[in-house]
Design a protein around this nucleic acid. Structure first.
Lengths: 186, 186, 186, 186
DNA sequence: CATGAATGAGAATTCATTCAT
DNA sequence: GATGAATGAATTCTCATTCAT
């Protein structure tokens, strides 16, 4: 596909993701996506074989977006406390800066017909590798990957979902960071 | 006249919730619900004005189900460590024993058109009140409600969602319990 | 049927006729009629065998209402000019005082599945008999019944339908009366 | 892509109008229209946004049809008596040659939810302009437009509706023409 | 590659009617 | 007689997809 085409495919993806935020997974139809993307419904079938495949593919692509976002913000030189803070703040700010993607991934990952397509673990493996390094250097407690993922990502997303008020959010965010530091550091 | 049949309404609810698990929110139509419940599609409109209202009402009802389940298992006489263990194990076993309700609530609470209808906080307030008592007696650290909810419920649900293998689940669950105890107790 | 029942049947009729004005013939369903009349849908079937029969029967009853209204206002003692004026003004004021019945009859009489049930001529025969007397006394020109009906009733109903502004209505009404007097009198 | 097929839209309109004559406004459903037009119900929604809009648009289009029909038959060179005869005969023969359109417009114009969409006056303005010329030349009495419309169009439509027997129709038609000539000419 | 038209299948909902009390 | 519940059939309309250009 040429660059022109890639740009069009991108427009379709973004349209879909925007619609998920506005209308929910069950309110997002192919024709609405087409209208939102400014293309014909038929054009969508140039890039995808079916709505189902499209959903699965875009879900797969975007499910790692929060982790890629994080990877750009962390660095192995950070001390462990800052790493934890950066991860948690990063999760939170991702959910604000990319609200549509955040909501899209949350919706897809809860949908039983889609969730099997993607494993959280694969997506988060780079971050976890980084943490392994800290663990091996004795800078972080040696909890298992599953538990780490559960406590590092789930609570902050929980806050992101339930807090509309940004200020209250900030306070709870700081508290959560302190909690996770005391939990994961020595 | 025939009197309105609450048992029939219940069957409709359960049919909907079962379908959410099997087919997802976007694959659940009124006629499928009717077939699953063994009634005519028109009958559903005797009990609900529209699919939207039905969804909202059932979501509202079931969103507190996990917390009601928990409340039956905890007691103010438990020591703090056991309380935490009971809550986390309770969350997990609810997700196994009531897989459909768990999945239903997770899906609805991520759907932007529905999530506003229900606040997690209201649902969890009884549990939080119980914890307040422990906090006031100096048996648990005085974290805010938001943070408590975030760390007590979100990670275990995260595990429940991502672990299919029941054994791995058990180990991580134990670890998570230990983590939360060390985090929340003195 | 007892008087209680007749009153209920009357309520149903009036509800139907009111709905025809508000929602049109195609927007009037049995359940809406029931709700408007304050009875159960099933009750309607105590009085009528089907919606179709109900419609036909009520149409038959109300189609002569404008003529009965007229008959109460005219008298064989009137001079011919006054008779014409009374008829035309009567038609017009009926359409204002009984807007629902007027609209109901107009709608039914245009509907091909209903119109055959009722003939205008039968309904207007009393008025026409009165006019025959004037014609035989040489006080009105001897036009045929069909033409008389056409010029006495159709134009004023045309005005009643198309004039919303009551003042413009009055002027045109007076003009129409003068026209009909010059047409029908010697 | 296929280009929008105006002939197909026309087929849909004609199907609707035909059904109004056969089954009445309340017996005309979108699927019946589709079947009658030989298209899929969904196709109708390519051309119209809703049944309501479709009805309104087609009503608007056809409401002037009888007047356009008349305009092709009259001419400013006719003498006044012939003009009146042509108009009345034209109205009548339109109702016979285009029975479906006649019935369609009559039904729509009586339906309160539709009638506001179209004003008789706008439709008849060309004919009325022609008559104004005769009035100004002193060839026809100077009655107002409202009254003219009422006596020129309403009675003949009344006859067209109530006369099934074609012979009786013809006699009354002649009489009506004579009446209108004596009424409107000097 | 791109498209608007077209559609069969199915969505949500309402209908006229009947049932059971 | 009167009713609210119940429903099969039909309603309007949307969906995901394909067709013809």
């Amino acid at each position: 596909m040429r660059s022109k085409d890639l740009e069009k495919k991108q427009r379709i993806k973004e349209a879909m993701v925007r619609l998920f935020l506005r209308e929910g997974i069950d309110g997002t139809s192919v024709s609405k996506i087409a209208r939102e993307a400014g293309v014909s419904p038929a054009t969508i079938y140039v890039y995808y074989n079916s709505k189902e495949e499209m959903l699965a593919e875009v879900f797969r692509e975007y499910s790692s977006a929060p982790y890629r976002y994080l990877m750009q913000r962390v660095s192995p030189e950070m001390d462990a406390a800052l790493l934890i803070e950066t991860i948690i703040r990063g999760c939170f700010s991702f959910s604000r800066e990319h609200e549509e993607i955040f909501s899209f991934v949350e919706q897809c990952s809860r949908c039983p017909t889609l969730s099997e397509q993607v494993s959280e673990e694969e997506c988060s493996c780079d971050i976890l590798d980084l943490i392994h390094a800290y663990q091996q250097r004795g800078l972080m407690r040696p909890y298992s990957d599953g538990s780490l993922g559960a406590v590092l990502f789930a609570p902050v997303r929980f806050l992101a979902m339930n807090r509309c008020d940004p200020c209250a959010g900030e306070e709870e965010l700081s508290e959560l960071i302190r909690m996770m530091q005391s939990l994961l550091l020595y």
